[in-house]
Write a protein that binds this DNA or RNA. Structure first.
Lengths: 142, 142
DNA sequence: ATTGACGTTTACGTAAACGTCAATTACCAT
DNA sequence: ATGGTAATTGACGTTTACGTAAACGTCAAT
């Protein structure tokens, strides 16, 4: 009944160590993402103070990483998310970027589907052989 | 009406340069994959000769890379594919490996779904603003 | 006053996945 | 025989994404 609030998202700010624990990464990594321009925490003197916005970005970064995007690509994606203004030309270029990302993601999705299918095949073979090893005590089972 | 057969998969063997062209990678990369134990082409003296099996593996490698797997992970996956024997303990350990891969892929799938949704939101906002820029010539449409 | 926990910057190290020469060698056509 | 083209190995360089260590500041508790 204590320490719960450290895990929940109610609080408005976090220290670097808290975020590191929460996301299972090192503080070094978090500072590195900042150096790469992916997050910009507030400063209280020398200390960094992370706001909900930074937490969200961290989540996006980690998700991007799971998908195999480079930090540069992740930055592009994040930039797509929170950009407000937009003259017509910019917006069109913007839509193009989105289309690129989407194509990439859909390729990945196809790749995943294929791999999952193949894994199912492999697994089926595997189980069949396991049955063959376990079963032959009594001829065969149906 | 010539050179077609280089693109098709009928032929039984390929040179390293042919495969490099076909898959859009460098010969250096192909040799590197071999050094990492991901493919083992036949040798004709000094030359390498690639068989259909090697082509398939190259495809798997590139697919794995698109999904952000490391070469070590890709090797594990490939090893899952073409392994014949199996004592019971091995087979179980094997099924565990498959389960791990599957979990990883399903996480990626969720990540992709989320990202695609968010991209759709961003795109919708973007189009709305484009309309706002183009539309106001005549009050508003609808 | 000191210890400990946490934070900071700066700098160098490292693993992965190739790229980029360089120096040879093999094969083919003229 | 002689280019020209394609292949080989080996060595070193490069980028990405941090890890690791050093050297120091800050603050609260003992």
């Amino acid at each position: 009944m204590h320490g719960m609030e450290e895990l929940l998202a109610h609080r408005a700010t976090w220290s670097i160590a808290e975020l590191a624990r929460e996301f299972g990464i090192t503080t070094r990594a978090i500072r590195f993402y900042e150096a790469e321009g992916l997050i910009e925490p507030e400063r209280q003197g020398a200390q960094r103070l992370y706001h909900p916005r930074d937490r969200v970005r961290l989540k996006l970064i980690l998700r991007g990483k799971r998908l195999g995007f480079t930090l540069a690509e992740i930055r592009e994606i994040i930039d797509l998310y929170d950009r407000e203004p937009g003259e017509a030309g910019q917006l069109q270029h913007f839509l193009d970027k989105i289309a690129e990302r989407r194509a990439d993601l859909e390729q990945k999705r196809r790749d995943i589907a294929l791999t999952l299918e193949e894994l199912s095949d492999v697994e089926a073979n595997c189980r069949r052989r396991l049955d063959e090893l376990a079963g032959p005590q009594r001829g065969r089972e149906s």
